[in-house]
Design a protein around this nucleic acid. Sequence first.
DNA 1: ACTTTGAAAACAAAAAAAGTTTTCAAGATT
DNA 2: AATCTTGAAAACTTTTTTTGTTTTCAAAGT
Lengths: 205, 205
Amino acid sequence: MSLAPTHIHTVRELFFRYGLKSMTMDELAKQLGCSKKTIYENYADKKVLVHSVLGGFLDEHRSEMAALDRNHENAIAKLIRMAAIGFQKMRNLTPTILFDLQKSYPELWMELERYRKEEIVEIFKRLIERGQHEGLIRQEIDPSVVSIMHLQHTNLLLDPVVFSHLDRPLATVFHNIMEVFVGGITTSQGLEVWNNTKAQMNLQP
Amino acid sequence: MSLAPTHIHTVRELFFRYGLKSMTMDELAKQLGCSKKTIYENYADKKVLVHSVLGGFLDEHRSEMAALDRNHENAIAKLIRMAAIGFQKMRNLTPTILFDLQKSYPELWMELERYRKEEIVEIFKRLIERGQHEGLIRQEIDPSVVSIMHLQHTNLLLDPVVFSHLDRPLATVFHNIMEVFVGGITTSQGLEVWNNTKAQMNLQP
DNA sequence: ACTTTGAAAACAAAAAAAGTTTTCAAGATT
DNA sequence: AATCTTGAAAACTTTTTTTGTTTTCAAAGT
C-alpha cells in the first residue's frame, strides 16, 4: 500500500512528457520500478490514475491562486503574478497530452476547459474589478471581456505554432504580452503603480 | 494517386507534434482530409509511412550537410554551421516521438542512432582533421574523441531535463556550448579566424 | 518456520488500431 | 446524357495492443 505520495509525481512527469497514450500501464510500472498490481491496488483503473494526476495538477494551481489572494499587494501586481503562475503552470501541457486528453479522456478535457474558462477567468475578472475600485484600471474596461482576452493570451503562448519559432525565452514573450495588456487597461495612476511594483517583484515567467 | 509530395510534410508535422502512437491512421486521414484508402494506396502500411517520414527527415539533413561541404569556408566556420544545423534539426525530435520510435519502431530508432553516431560523427571528425591541416585546430586534439563529445553535446541540448528549466533560448545555450568547444580545440590562429568569422556569419541556433 | 509483501510474469478480456472492402456522390470522359 | 473514374466516408474484419486479473515466487519481516 505504498506508491501514492511519492510516485504520483513521477507518474505526472511521465504522463506529461510522453503523453497518456504512449505511457501504458506496463511501461508506467516499469518506470516506477513496481508491479502493475501495486498500481491497481491504489488506483481502480487508468482513468482514475489520470484523473488523480490532472486533479492534483489543478489543485496545485488552485492553491497557488488562493495563496495569491491572501497576500496584500495591489490589484495590478496580483494580476501579473496570477498570469505568471498560469503561464508557468500551463506550459507543462504539451501538445501530446492535450491531444490524448481530448481524445481518450474527453470528460477530463472538458474539466480542464471548464477550469480555465470558468474558475480562472472568474478570478481574473474579479481582480480587474478590484483594480477598477482601486482606481488602477480604467472604468471603460469590461472585466468580462478582458478576462477572456487574457485566457486567450495564455492559449497563444502555449500554442507551438504561434511564438515558438521565434526561439525567445517564454519569459520574454510573456513580459511583452503583459506590457501591452497592462498598459492597455490601466489608468495613469495604475501605470505608475505598475512601474513601481514591476521593479520590486521578481517574476518567474 | 495524389498525397505524396504535399501531404507528407503534414504527416511529418503531425507525427512530430503528437507522437507516432497518438497519431493513428484514422486520425491522420481525418487531419489530412483524405481517406485511409488513399493513404494505403501510397504506403503499404504505417511502418512504411513512418519510415518514409523519418527517412525524408534524415535525407534533408544529409543534403544540408552536403551543401555545407561544397561551400568554401574555413574548417572552423563549417564546424559551427554544421553544429547549428544539427541542433536546429534535432530539436524537432520531441521526447514523445523518440519514445514511440524506440518502442514501436526499434529498427528505425537504430537507424536514427546509427545515422547520428556514424554518419554525422564521421563528417564532424573529418572537419576536425581538416581544421588540423589548416593549422586552426590543435594537433593534440583527437578527432575521434571530440567528434563523439560534440554528439553528446547535441544530446544534452535536446534532453528536456538538462537545460530546459533555465528557460534560455536554445540559441543562447548553443552559443555558450560552442564557445567552450571551439575555444577548447583551436590554436591561437584558429581562435583568431573564429573571432573574425563569427561576426560575419549569422547563425540560426 | 511462517507470514506478509510486492515484483515479475503469465493470463484472459476488452479495446483500439490496422488494414480491407463497400458505398456513394461528384467530376471527368466518351 | 450516359458511363466511368475517383476518392472520401464509413462499415467491416483482423490483428495487435492494452487493460486489468491472477499466479508465481523470492526476499523481507515476524
